[in-house]
Design a protein around this nucleic acid. Structure first.
Length: 854
RNA sequence: GCCCCUGUGGCGGAAUGGUAGACGCGGCAGACUCAAAAUCUGUUGUCCGCAAGGGCGUGUUGGUUCGAGUCCGACCAGGGGCACCA
């Protein structure tokens, strides 16, 4: 019995593709183009199976489309700037650049071994000055176009590390590494004006019909368009007021307080006079900037002592609170509270004993008895207790309330977006320097284009807390390009999302002197199929959509949407293991003992098995790619990652499953190398006579070609694999004595090799050669199914009595309705189930089912 | 708190409103073997039954329909997102 030699074959066929330069492409107007892109990885150290799942899906598509005659662009690169490199620098004294480039070398090698069909000539690393210099130029152009600007904003500040923290780095109000209490601080930072395109970014989501529904929904929520009113409450005894934004101006007569954000100027003013307010604001700053945390926290407030005057009734005064649930970043940073119509306001009013005035009467309720209980009423209804708004529906009341505010001159209707401008400044070393010089007399001066790129200095130290660029002895000291006097470089670097917002354009002409060649971009863009994790559903994808618009406005391109099709794949998960002390264990540190109990390999101590979770280093539930590829080969890993779960769902890695795939690969190998009946030479014409038994198998071959093609088009890789397995099972059961069996078996084996090719390219190439074909399979067109062989002459109908299955009926396809009814009614099982009762009705669905109703 | 998704055998999962459990993993039985591994064959939702056959089954619970895993309502459970991780 022969065994498929993985090592030899995988090396051999990869070398053959490389020698052919099979996947290097150029623009070719004669052929339809197809741009397949997987989200490029951060070079974290080594490839894990999650990456491989992502890239395998892209490769399946790239190889499939290539076989269908498309000119396929399938590039790969590295999202190489980022925090982990700096953390590594702090932890192990290795320079971020060294660490990054070493990781890239390891991961590139791993990717090559997986046999993914990339055009490696287009490889890019975003930390390379040849990449980021174009980004600096774009920034200058955005600045010119008014799409980039500088302003103050709030951040989470770690006073020990002297650094800004991400929300996820704030744990219970403390810095993740230092443990120091986090402060909210104002910092002057650079922003991209994404809100400029808010309406268009929202409206165009409708055109992205090849994006997953949930991603579109997430983006819609993120942009968060709302219609409401911005208006002013005068403050009693002062000549200023407080401006609020509300989506429910119709409920103004239910108002019982005004609340401002802890960062609102009025709050700061109150804090200066009242230590209690100051202490409260201090307390709020501990919550951090995350909306989820703020919204979930108990609604707390602190009375400022100020009184706001109701815009519709100057004798009506409302208390002004500082409240922890009011966000400075949204609207005006101030609201009015209507407890009967908003849950947060209701909680707040209950806590502080404020009036609760119902103003919207739900349909069918009696105004005399309707009362607000535990829940605020936010649904539709009719206004009451609301003077001139009484009797109007909510929508109409909103319109009238706004009209009245406008008449009074204290406000107007306004559309608000939840979307805020994109803050791109990071107080970090390992990122793209922002090409700006700060001069005391000239202000912020752009670095002249001729001086680009602004390169990162290499001699930096990570001994001190804070930004290494800031405490570098010389780097930031430069002459002002405008006046020549001593000035200081911007020491912030870009958010790494900036690099990933245009890398797909760079791939179109990766070695061009400009950011990209317009002709190449016009040919290849948009990306036809983008594949990546759903974790990027909002930010990366929205930023890229913004960049495409911003670059188009600056004359770089002429396109709004960079990604025509998007697919978000699930994560790869694995069981977790802990020893008796609760320490996490790697899968290879455990084994299953004879009784089925799980024990440690060392010392046989009992292991508790946890549920399957996303593979992560911290829980050690990771499987090494090397071990799999060494043992079973790249094709096994690829096929397993495609076969067990639908691609959009999480996949559980199991050793058993991978072994099953390995068995299957060997079964296919033996099917071809040790056929049950001698195969005629390649290209032999179809024999005159084919036995009905063999004809059934031939039909299976064509049905499989048809179904697998359809499944690949629809991203149903797991089903495609299942169908190919059915084909292989069917070929294994072919009667070798049947007339025409050899020819049918050849057709079947060829189809199996071709259909498997996008998934197991090495194996398929080897099978193709075994089957006597000389040209590479990679240069062979996709097989076509013969439509005549897709439909059977006989069909099996299910027969039900009152909806319950009682038997089946084999009938010719499209048989006469009366014939079917009669045959069904004569079935013994039907007679038995009907218990002698006459049929009241017989439902016949052609070629599918008969339902006898008695 | 707000928004969203998912619940089907021991497990991963199939199923245009039409034969629930394809395909695989695991289990059980057998063949080959001195033995094991590898491989192959059969079997495998559950309950009753010697069998033929039948009852029950897609988180719970109502509804629509000749017919519901699929559509609609309520509930329960698990998961995800909510602006400096990438």
């Amino acid at each position: 019995m022969s065994r498929y030699n993985v090592r030899e074959n995988e090396d051999k066929w990869r070398a053959a593709w490389t020698e052919r330069a099979a996947f290097a492409v150029t623009e070719d107007s004669a052929r339809p183009k197809y741009y397949v892109l997987e989200m490029f990885p951060y070079p974290s150290g080594r490839l894990h199976v999650g990456h491989v799942r992502n890239y395998t899906m892209g490769d399946v598509l790239a190889r499939y489309k290539r076989a269908r005659g498309f000119n396929v662009l399938h590039p790969m690169g590295w999202d190489a700037f980022g925090l982990p490199a700096e953390n590594a620098a702090i932890a192990s004294k290795v320079h971020p650049a060294t660490w990054t480039y070493e990781n890239i070398a390891v991961m590139r090698d791993q990717l090559r071994r997986m046999g993914i069909a990339y055009d490696w000539n287009r490889e890019i690393a975003t930390c390379h000055p040849e990449y980021y210099r174009h980004e600096q130029k774009m920034f200058l152009d955005f600045l010119q176009a008014g799409l980039a600007y500088r302003k103050e904003s709030w951040v989470n500040w770690d006073p020990v590390e002297n650094t800004v923290l991400a929300n996820e780095q704030v744990i219970d109000g403390r810095g993740w590494r230092s443990g120091a209490a986090v402060e909210r601080r104002r910092l002057s930072q650079w922003f991209f004006k994404i809100t400029e395109f808010a309406d268009d970014l929202l409206a165009a989501i409708k055109t992205l019909d090849r994006w997953p529904e949930r991603v579109r929904l997430m983006q819609e929520n993120w942009i968060g368009r709302s219609e409401g009113a911005r208006f002013r409450f005068e403050l009693a005894g002062r000549d200023d007021g407080v401006e609020v934004y509300s989506t429910r101006p119709d409920t103004l007569f239910g108002a019982s307080f005004v609340a401002v954000s802890p960062n609102h100027p009025l709050a700061e003013e109150a804090a200066r006079k009242d230590p209690a307010v100051a202490a409260f604001i201090q307390e709020c700053s501990r919550l951090g900037t995350s909306e989820a945390v703020i919204e979930a926290a108990e609604k707390l407030g602190c009375d400022t002592g100020l009184k706001a005057i109701h815009p519709f009734d100057s004798s009506w005064e409302l208390p002004v609170y500082v409240a922890n649930f009011v966000l400075m970043e949204y609207g005006t940073g101030a609201i009015f509270g209507c407890p009967s119509g908003d849950q947060r306001d209701l909680d707040f009013a209950r806590k502080y004993g404020l009036p609760i005035i119902p103003v919207v009467l739900p349909p069918g309720e009696d105004p005399a008895s309707f009362a607000i209980g535990e829940e605020a009423y936010t649904g539709p209804g009719t206004l009451y207790n609301s003077r001139f708004l009484d009797g109007f529906e909510v929508t109409e009341a909103k319109r009238r309330a706004i009209a009245e505010l406008e008449r009074l001159g204290c406000g107007s209707g306004e559309v608000q977006f939840r979307l805020r401008d994109w803050g791109v400044s990071r107080q970090r070393y390992w990122g793209c320097p922002i090409p700006i010089i700060h001069c005391e007399s000239c202000g912020t001066v752009p670095v002249p284009e001729a001086d680009l790129p602004v390169r990162l200095p290499e001699d930096v130290s990570f001994d001190k807390p804070g930004n290494p660029l800031d405490h570098h002895p010389t780097w930031k000291h430069v002459a002002c390009p405008s006046c020549g006097r001593p000035a200081r470089r911007e020491t912030d670097t870009f958010d790494t999302f900036v690099e990933s917002s245009w890398y797909f354009l760079r791939f179109c002409s990766a070695r061009d002197d400009h950011a990209f060649d317009r002709k190449a971009v016009d040919y290849w863009m948009p990306v036809d199929q983008y594949i990546g994790g759903v974790e990027h559903a909002v930010l990366h994808l929205l930023y890229s959509r913004f960049f495409m618009r911003a670059l188009s406005r600056c004359g770089y391109a002429d396109m709004a949407e960079p990604f025509a099709g998007l697919f978000t794949q699930g994560m790869v998960c694995h069981e977790t293991y802990q020893d008796p002390e609760g320490k996490w264990l790697f899968p290879e540190e455990i084994r299953r003992a004879d009784g089925g109990a799980v024990v440690t390999v060392e010392g046989e101590r009992p292991v508790s098995v946890g549920r399957s979770e996303k593979m992560s280093k911290s829980k050690k539930n990771v499987v090494g790619l090397e071990a799999i590829v060494e043992g079973f080969g790249a094709d096994t890993a690829r096929l397993f990652l495609l076969s067990d779960s639908p691609p959009e769902r999480d996949l559980e890695w199991t050793d058993g499953g991978a072994e099953g795939v390995w068995r299957f690969i060997n079964r296919v190998w033996r099917l071809v190398t040790e056929p049950s009946v001698a195969l005629p030479p390649a290209g032999t014409a179809r024999p005159e006579r084919i036995d009905p038994a063999a004809d059934g198998v031939l039909r299976l071959v064509h049905k499989t070609i048809h179904a697998v093609t359809d499944d690949l088009e629809g991203f149903r890789f797991n089903k495609a694999v299942a169908r190919i397995r059915e084909l292989v099972n069917g070929l294994g059961e072919l009667d070798p004595a049947a007339e025409g069996a050899g020819w049918v078996l050849r057709r079947g084996c060829e189809a199996a090799a071709q259909l498997l090719a996008p998934m197991t390219p090495h194996l398929s190439e080897a099978l193709w050669k075994e089957l006597g074909h000389d040209p590479l399979l990679v240069d062979t067109p996709w097989p076509e199914a013969d439509a005549a062989l897709l439909v059977d002459d006989m069909v099996t109908l299910a027969v039900q009595v009152n909806g319950k299955l009682r038997g089946t009926l084999d009938m010719p396809r499209d048989a006469d309705r009366g014939l079917i009814e009669k045959a069904a009614l004569d079935l013994p099982a039907v007679l038995r189930a009907a218990e002698g009762k006459p049929p009241r009705k017989v439902v016949v669905v052609p070629n599918r089912i008969v339902n006898v109703v008695v």
